[in-house]
């Protein structure tokens, strides 16, 4: 990363692992879990959050000196809501089916705690460039978890990835299915998202003892 100083680069890389917004900061879980039954939906959701958080952080950071602190929550909400409306309209125009799948969860990006959390914790106290990097970094950290969860749930639940039948055809019994493999339909149900995230947290904290609580 020749472009970025070491400190700036850390803003992007930290949230990917040791300061991950979902598994460590516990932010933004609301919308993260419900839409991860398919990899495609997870990717689109991640991109939406990337856009909203990147742009929103810059906007808030530019306005940080003129926002009266008493009404800052509502100012932040209006900024996010505007950005989310843009995302929602773009999705409805270019990917209508997908926007139906995501249904209200695009709207719920507004109250996604990652967004408000980063506004409060970072954008209100830092310049626009660093805020932008922080936004991108945290959105990527969010994306990593979403994509891992989406990957396993789609692969084990329906035997596909992005809609491609990577494990063979379950009806014609080709590929793995010829050996008697069955899809685990349970993975598609919402509770499994929680358990998969729980396992990710387990793996992560086993590898890095410093993150263990209590």
């Amino acid at each position: 990363m020749g472009l970025l100083s070491k400190k700036d680069a850390a803003l992007i890389t930290d949230p990917l692992a040791d300061n991950n917004p979902i598994t460590i900061q516990v932010l933004g879980i609301c919308s993260a879990l419900a839409i991860t039954a398919e990899l495609k939906a997870s990717i689109v959701m991640s991109l939406s959050v990337l856009f909203v958080l990147g742009v929103g952080n810059v906007v808030i950071s530019l306005m940080r000196n003129i926002i009266p602190s008493k009404i800052r929550i509502i100012v932040q909400l209006i900024v996010v809501a505007t950005l989310v409306i843009i995302v929602d309209q773009v999705l409805k125009a270019f990917a209508y089916d997908l926007s139906k799948t995501l249904s209200v969860f695009i709207g719920l990006i507004i109250t996604n705690c990652i967004i408000m959390g980063r506004f409060e914790a970072f954008a209100l106290g830092n310049g626009p460039w660093r805020s932008f990097l922080d936004g991108i970094g945290n959105a990527l950290g969010y994306a990593v978890i979403l994509i891992i969860v989406g990957f396993f749930r789609e692969l084990l639940g329906s035997g596909t990835l992005l809609g491609f039948k990577v494990l063979g055809d379950p009806i014609e019994k080709t590929g793995l299915y010829a050996l008697g493999y069955e899809n685990n339909g349970f993975m598609l149900l919402s509770p499994m998202a929680l358990i998969v995230v729980g396992i990710i947290i387990w793996v992560q904290r086993t590898r890095n003892k410093a993150l263990v609580e209590d």
Partner: peptide, 23 residues
């Protein structure tokens, strides 16, 4: 609870089990 699961991890898994119950 295994140390790495303490706190957040186990809460997630319990919530998952409760969600299965609620299903």
């Amino acid at each position: 609870v295994p140390p790495a699961l303490r706190g957040l991890g186990i809460t997630f898994i319990i919530t998952g089990l409760m969600a299965i119950g609620f299903m």
